[in-house]
Design a protein around this nucleic acid. Structure first.
Lengths: 345, 345
DNA sequence: CTGAAAGCGCTTACAG
DNA sequence: CTGAAAGCGCTTACAG
């Protein structure tokens, strides 16, 4: 517990354990067997290190090593079930593979994204994973110039391999579900409204494709005014709907849980007209299934996406190659409370 | 875009820009004005660095510097609105203060918590913040031996200063709200049930205190069987309630949103008896206010907690000092949909 | 206004 | 079985 002015180094331990700094180093980093250091010495060193509360100086250690095993990830948000789960599982899975995960949250800000990626390169990351990045190609270009591997997750790029959900297929089955449920519960299924997301963003564009495709397959025309891709913000989703008061059966395709927050706010203002609304959401939240009117949610297969992307670390893969991971569809009961699970995507 | 075998260093740039490595270093780290290096040279160096996609080697840089400005945080989860928000805002606020935040997620595993803290010390963090740690004192002891400052957030410790919510006061106003709403909506207010959390954990214990205090103040006795502190797991919360079928007005104090997930699952199984249940939850989730039967949630003041704890970085404060931050109470309308906001704690 | 040089704490071939 | 020594890429007094 004593306060040391300077942190304990291998030289301090060498002195205390009556050994050479090299011996201490190799005992502490596990290469001592290869160096055939005696068990006795190894134990003495370990004990002294423990007693001194020694922690290796990662800076010095990494500076000397050839590979850092640091793997960096940028992620738009933590305070979101999808990205929170990605960050959490990523750290766990990377650790299990003997890597040192470093995650940083960039708030959907392109400038911050780039700065953060640069920072990860500074930290000698062997690989940088851009999750949901606005401009992944800029990051890849920088990484490539620095000789660092880069990979894209969730949103694809053209300058590095990408792993993304099959958004089109997922959106299509969700659209089908909402249309079916409107038909079953209201006897009618007019064109749905598409709420939230940004069409300049690849995922939203693919989801809109799936959305339109399913309508087309059923011979339902979608008026242009039904596409309300107002961005990733609850306020904007609520604002886009605020003037609208349903007078008949209404179905919504909600693109992202953040848009869903806006939608439920709007629903709260409707009063009894709320009963005329059914919706489904692309992206899952544990409370989603208990929201009145919610018929189902698409859950992206985070585990599968991460194991796919982690499998690419250190491997050669053509830039621009996009790997699609199927989504899961979760359907909720007509009472809006008991969730059932199904396959989709 | 060219692949370099070795990463670009200041020596490469020095050669290309026809300058000395020292000059390059001071241009790139911003100390060049102090060294009165010519603007011309500075510009040349900056341009070459940019063209080469140079990123400083943080390892080498930090190894040489006296202060790292790295500030570490361990957090139990990202996939949780409260902790996700803490991690996200922490990174943002730390950056705004010129620090380099490094956050790692430890899944409520005491061993992982300690390992992660050790890793942060290895990374030369100037300060380690233990958020919601199971055994913060063990981390503080280690940090203190290494001469590193440590602070506790959310759960207090005795070996370092702590910043926590005023859980007792928050729980008391939430209990009062639930009792009042049961009285208003059912005409009766028997003892509530306390669901979720772990009583060995400081926060749950304080919340139970507030819970019991409010009952006592109203002369309501709480049967022992009404305390179902089954841990931080939706499954366990659901299991604790699974045998119970309300036959009369029932109020629940739900301790944590993870327990709330279990509670709403149970509610879904009740059918019409669901209408006999009112509950409130300690911790906030954006969808919480739209769940049927939810009368209110306590929101912890993450921003205030973080600015308090960040204000302590680099400062001397007595170990064991606990700083309490008031919580906010959010009340939801009787329709279970429109949220109102009030003050509590 | 600018450069040569020492040194941060490690790791690892190399030489016993 | 073990140690002395070089060097990773920076920063910063120090000496011009």
């Amino acid at each position: 517990m004593k306060k040391t002015p300077r942190r304990t180094t291998i030289y301090d331990i060498a002195q205390l354990a009556d050994a050479s700094p090299s011996a201490v180093s190799s005992v502490l980093n596990g290469t001592w067997k290869k160096r055939r250091i005696s068990v006795k010495l190894a134990e003495r060193v370990t004990q002294v290190a423990e007693a001194q509360g020694y922690a290796v100086n990662a800076q010095a250690s990494l500076l000397r090593r050839e590979k850092s095993n640091v793997i960096g990830m940028i992620v738009p948000k933590y305070d979101n079930r999808y990205f929170g789960q990605i960050a959490e599982r990523f750290e766990e899975m990377a650790r299990a593979r003997g890597l040192f995960p470093v995650v940083t949250c960039t708030q959907r800000d392109p400038e911050l994204e780039f700065e953060a990626a640069k920072e990860l390169v500074s930290w000698q990351a062997d690989c940088v994973i851009s999750t949901g990045a606005t401009d992944p190609d800029r990051i890849s270009a920088f990484c490539s110039a620095a000789g660092v591997q880069s990979l894209n997750l969730d949103l694809p790029g053209t300058a590095a391999p990408s792993v993304v959900s099959d958004n089109r297929a997922g959106a299509r089955v969700l659209t089908a579900l909402i249309l079916d449920r409107c038909a079953a519960e209201f006897g009618t299924s007019g064109a749905l409204r598409f709420v939230g997301g940004r069409l300049s963003d690849h995922n939203s564009a693919r989801r809109l494709e799936g959305f339109l495709e399913e309508h087309r397959a059923r011979g339902i025309e979608v008026p242009e005014a039904h596409v309300l891709a107002t961005g990733y913000s609850a306020d904007k989703a609520a604002a886009a709907l605020s003037g609208f008061r349903p007078t008949g059966p209404t179905g919504l395709f909600v693109n992202s849980t953040i848009a869903l927050e806006g939608v439920v706010r709007w629903l709260g203002e409707l009063g009894p007209a709320m009963d005329l609304v059914r919706y489904g959401c692309f992206d899952w939240d544990p409370f989603g299934g208990y929201l009145p009117g919610n018929v189902g949610m698409v859950e992206q297969d985070v585990e599968a996406m991460l194991s796919r992307v982690l499998g690419m670390v250190g491997e050669e893969a053509p830039a621009g190659e996009v790997s699609y991971v199927p989504c899961l569809l979760r359907e909720f009961g007509a009472d809006g409370v008991s969730p059932r699970t199904g396959q989709g995507g």
